[in-house]
Design a protein around this nucleic acid. Structure first.
Length: 397
RNA sequence: GGAGGCUUCGCCUAGCCUGGUCUAUGGCGCCGCACUGCUAAUGCGGUUUGGGUUUAUCGCCCAUCCCGGGUUCGAAUCCCGGAGCCUCCGCCA
């Protein structure tokens, strides 16, 4: 997926920048020498030297302008290039993923209902009023639906804390440079909500953005750093018309617990496997049937070097649907956000990785669908019961 | 929303009024060396970050005193704009 033209443009921009810097640097060096001479010159000579220096001024200014535009050009050329793909990633596009593992048995349910029907029986999801108040792809969670979200978030945070993550509640609005630094203004820019009338801020599609920005422009002394961030997430879902129009599988807003790791660059692959393991632990505790896929190169987005998705079984759809996604962004985000650590040969960029622990709306949809009973009630996985007042089953009212 | 104060190389701090060896002072912390039976103490040296040049090292050079402009031969220092923090007033969950 590397674009040869983009690489050439980058190399050219780099050459131009170096040349511009050398020119500007040497002009500045001369200017400083002259200025110092003026300070020490005898008063009667001073005017003559000053006249000479005045002539330099324009040359220095022009060279600095050149240097600035060369800097900007290099940065643009860099931003046009996606992350390098890790060895072993399957080639191809969206449909060319490789299934790494299938876990659990497909539940046998006669005439399964979808999560909206089940949710209606439980009075857990209100789409009509969501549309009335906010429009399409918005919803209210009510009663046991709202309780389910809190239960899932609490379970996810409890597991993350036990694994050593620092729980974080992160801002859902971020500055442009943070959005840019995480790579979300590249190919996926149309997915992102932008407040531009009075405030130049972006609504995050995931707390990954804020958690990556958290340590921007810092030198990290202790690694790894692991954060479990909770935030609302906002997605325009441009270009997904007609896809998942029913229910709360694909919505403009949802809440999510996201894992985020900062590690040394040479430990990124191991950390990626650990994130995947923690995701599996969470999905396992929900007693869901799922498969793990290795996402193909063409479907990685601009920042990921590799991505593993966990897709859970939705009986009403007879299909696996994505519940979690973990990406190894290697040093891509850290370079853009200027996040380094002390290395053997000076400071070097760290690696950043992220992984979904629990996207609430979609996970609720899956639980209702997957654990539905013939009478319209819903089985509660054991791990979730402590967070739902001990209930073993959710019953229609 | 209004008024005032502040922002210096990890932390604290000098410098700003009165522009020029500021190539930024001192303390703390940290690193190295010396001394000492070990530690402590003491002494000496080092310690912002980024970039350019260099095969590499050494070195040399440029930038960096919150950010962006401006004045000037020359800006940490003067002027304008902005951001953040603090205090007080107003408003508010």
């Amino acid at each position: 997926r590397a674009d040869p033209d983009a690489i050439d443009r980058l190399l050219d921009a780099d050459d131009l920048r170096r040349a511009a810097i050398s020119r500007a640097d040497s002009l500045r060096a001369e200017q400083k020498t002259i200025s110092r001479a003026i300070a020490q010159a005898a008063p009667e000579d001073r005017h003559a030297v000053q006249a000479r220096a005045r002539a330099r001024k324009e040359a220095v200014r022009a060279a600095e302008t050149d240097q600035n535009s060369a800097d900007d050009a290099l940065r643009l050329a860099q931003f046009a290039i996606a992350n390098l793909v890790e060895d072993g990633v399957p080639p191809g596009g969206e449909d060319d993923f490789v299934t790494l593992e299938v876990v659990g048995d497909v539940p046998q349910i006669e005439n399964p209902k979808d999560h909206l029907e089940i949710g209606a029986g439980l009075k857990a999801i209100d789409m009509e009023r969501g549309a009335k108040v906010s429009g399409a792809r918005f919803y209210f969670l009510t009663g046991v639906g709202a309780q389910l979200e809190f239960a899932l978030i609490n379970l996810a945070m409890a597991q993350a804390s036990a694994a050593g993550f620092t729980p974080v509640i992160a801002p859902a609005l971020v500055k442009p440079e943070i959005m840019e630094g995480t790579g979300f203004l590249g190919a996926h820019a149309a997915e992102v909500y932008h407040l531009d009338k009075d405030d130049d801020l972006y609504l995050v599609g995931t707390s990954e953005v804020a958690l990556a920005g958290y340590h921007s422009n810092e030198i990290l002394a202790e690694l790894p750093l692991r954060y479990a961030g909770f935030s609302s997430c906002f997605r325009r879902e441009a270009g997904s018309y007609g896809k998942d129009t029913k229910g709360i599988i694909r919505v403009h807003w949802f809440d999510k617990v996201e894992m985020f790791s900062y590690v040394r660059a040479d430990e990124a692959r191991e950390e990626h496997q650990r994130l995947l393991a923690w995701e599996r632990e969470f999905i396992d505790s929900l007693e869901l049937t799922y498969r793990v896929i290795d996402v193909a190169a063409g479907d990685l987005g601009s920042s990921a070097a590799r991505k593993f998705d966990i897709e859970a079984w939705f009986p009403s759809q007879g299909a696996y649907r994505e519940l979690t996604s973990t990406s190894n962004c290697t040093t891509f985000q850290a370079r853009r956000l200027n996040i380094r650590t002390k290395g053997a040969k000076g400071n070097e960029p760290v690696a950043t990785l992220n992984g979904t622990l629990c996207a609430a709306a979609r996970t609720i949809a899956c639980l209702l669908d997957h654990h539905q009973q013939p009478d319209g009630s819903v089985y509660v996985p054991a791990a979730l019961r402590p967070y739902l007042g001990g209930r073993e089953v959710l019953t229609p009212t």
